[in-house]
Nucleic acid binder design. Structure first.
Lengths: 110, 110
DNA sequence: CTCCATACTTACAAAAAGGTTAGTACCCTA
DNA sequence: TAGGGTACTAACCTTTTTGTAAGTATGGAG
């Protein structure tokens, strides 16, 4: 729930602390090519609960992976986008996609 | 605890189901270049509990990412190694390491 | 015949993650 | 002045994950 303080130098652990869990990478990949408001993210990730979405966005923001832009309007308008550090998680998403596709291949031919 | 049945086609989800959690990728990266017996893995990952190590190895084995080799000796001798499918998780470990290193850079210059 | 080493199991408990539901604040519009 | 749309909070509960501690099986060495 709070800002992550990194454990002593296992890069896997570091990455898991920042990006682990069911939703963070899904959120990041949803922001890959457009900044979106909360309501749009909700629509893009239909099965996430509102609580988790907001909570995870908050953590990602606190860790400088996502930036929150408040337009100060009423009704509220807030948009989220990846920071430069956050964009660097995208190759990881790519690796995961590739692993998944390889895996399904490999399993079928078994 | 049981063999994973894949959810309908989100590659991130697929990969998380197979490799998510605190230990699986650590185990996989420990087996990257040598097949090891349980006791050796325990030494290599000192802070994993025996139960988790065995449990996660079992799941990885059931999902064809790790192979269990039983030498049928007494006292028991069992070794674990990555399958071809398991080796394909290594680039993912690489991406995670790179992300972590980038991240620490980016954070420092902030 | 007792003990040892190794892999593994089981029962239980604690902690973390995720989900549900109801509510708040804000100003605008009707 | 009542209601609507949007982002967000809070209290509570369930489920999942992880950890702890004790115990099992095996055959050979002493």
């Amino acid at each position: 729930m709070e800002k992550v303080e990194l454990s002593p130098r296992c890069p896997i652990r570091t990455t898991l602390e920042l990006l682990g869990g069911k939703w963070r990478l899904v959120i990041i990949s949803s922001l890959a090519d457009q900044q979106l408001r909360l309501s749009a993210l909700k629509r893009k990730i239909p099965d996430i609960s509102e609580k988790m979405l907001i909570q995870e966005l908050k953590i990602l923001t606190e860790n400088y992976l996502v930036e929150r832009i408040n337009f100060g309007e009423v009704p509220p308008r807030v948009e989220y986008r990846l920071t430069e550090a956050g964009k660097k998680a995208l190759p990881l998403v790519g690796s995961m996609a590739e692993f998944a596709s390889n895996y399904e291949q490999d399993i079928r031919s078994l």
